[in-house]
Amino acid sequence: MSGLVRSEILKLRTARSFVVITSLGLGLTLLISILSGLLTDFSNPGTTRPAIDAILNASFVLFFSLMLGVLSVTTEYRHGSIAATLLVEPDRPRLLTAKLLAASAVGAVIGLVAAVLCLAIEAAILPTRDLALHADAGQLFNLIAGMTVAGALITALGVGVGGLVRRQTAAIVGVLAYLLLIESILTGLVLNSSQVRFTLNAAIAEATATTEAAGIDKLDDPLGQVAGALVLLAWALAFAFAGVLVMRARDITD
């Protein structure tokens, strides 16, 4: 399995789309972080809100990690390389597991880098406004660890989506539309406050410990960081399982 995972990591590293998406994601995240550090009005500077805001900014990169996860599967279908891949690893659940592990590792690194950089930027900018992060080492560890775990899980979720929907555009548009639009509609019209805690947006906010800044409707009683991460893990596993089932049954005809 380790060779298969290394193979998948090499695929990610040597695809231009990986470089473009990662650079774009981290670049935009850092830009948002800089603007936030310069412009956000922290009316109560004694709280840990600046550090949480930094992580909320960092969590923007998770959209790009999600796309990377999707692309790690759909690109193989798009370019026909899935057949070559299945010739060296015909066991599809095993292949998707390797993709999940590789993408999760990459997603974790991206989450970690984004969290550290955004906190560093805020820590550098805030003193120029006579403000500070006001977070101790334990809080900073939780925030960075949360982003790292969320990065891994959201990228794994993307892999599951890619296994489920082979068409690249449909998969990316579909998952982003769900995250940015459909879930908000569901939250507003259908779900009650206890159900909202299990939505994907809430799980991301809870796992990254940013619920107080994320502004998710009806999220009055969040589950907490660890439980939120477990909900996110459940989302990732559900999509991975569905992706494996669909991928196993799918004929590779082109």
Partner: peptide, 23 residues
């Protein structure tokens, strides 16, 4: 099975290396 069934942005050597690692 099909001509050119490899990622167009990847080098030929890296395409083969991904297969070698998996095998």
């Amino acid at each position: 099975l099909e001509v050119g069934a490899a990622h167009p942005g990847r080098s030929g050597r890296n395409h083969l290396r991904t297969l070698a690692l998996a095998s």
